[in-house]
Amino acid sequence: MSLNALWEFANPRKFIATTDRVLPWVAWAAALMLVAGLVWGFFFTPDDFRQGSTVKIIYLHVPSALMAINAWLMMLVTSLVWIVRRHHVSALAARAAAPVGMVMTLVALATGALWGQPMWGTWWAWDPRLTSFLILFLFYLGYIALWEAIENDDTAADLTSILCLVGSVFALLSRYAVNFWNQGLHQGASLSLDKQENVADVFWYPLLATIAGFVLLFVALVLMRTRTEIRARRMRALLARERMQA
């Protein structure tokens, strides 16, 4: 598919028609991967020799943390698309992704707290990673609140996309500032392609399955929410037209 064909989906009608066909597949694939990954991870992997069975929370913690950041990245990309090409679906997709991203951030924080309690002996520490996620959560909160506060759809899309761009820069700055401010307890990245000291293969494959499951779940939720946003927008446009005729 060429890049030009991609812009076709910027048409709300085309988007609805396409997602009508795609959405069930994505949703079922997400369910399948999640169930498979979680069952595999929870029941068919050994306990870690140091962490015991608490290690199994990794199957929720790592994928949700990944998606918390990727959701913001997706919002950044769709915001840029709105600013540059002014496709309404793009702005609405950013709006649709924000609450999903916020919930992912919350899940990452909550599972992290549950994991931290037995491991570090505390629910919360002002560790750079934890703190950054808390700040990311605040950014999501502000972004969503701004969308809700503004009546005119196009103005809201403009303002939130610029907030998303500026927020991204400041979120990145905060990440480094927080790193500088406190060296933490959190282990380094457990997944990377170039390093040898990754998690062992037994944990790695079910983890990959749950990550794929979370990605698919995110895509399914965002598609579903974008469809809702498009329909809500259409409803507002129809109501406005009604008022004009009256």
Binding site: L146, F170, S174, A177, V178
Partner: peptide, 13 residues
């Protein structure tokens, strides 16, 4: 709500 998260890096440094 919008400004306080943006103040974080300035406050930290």
């Amino acid at each position: 709500l919008l400004v306080l998260p943006l103040y974080v890096p300035t406050l930290i440094f």
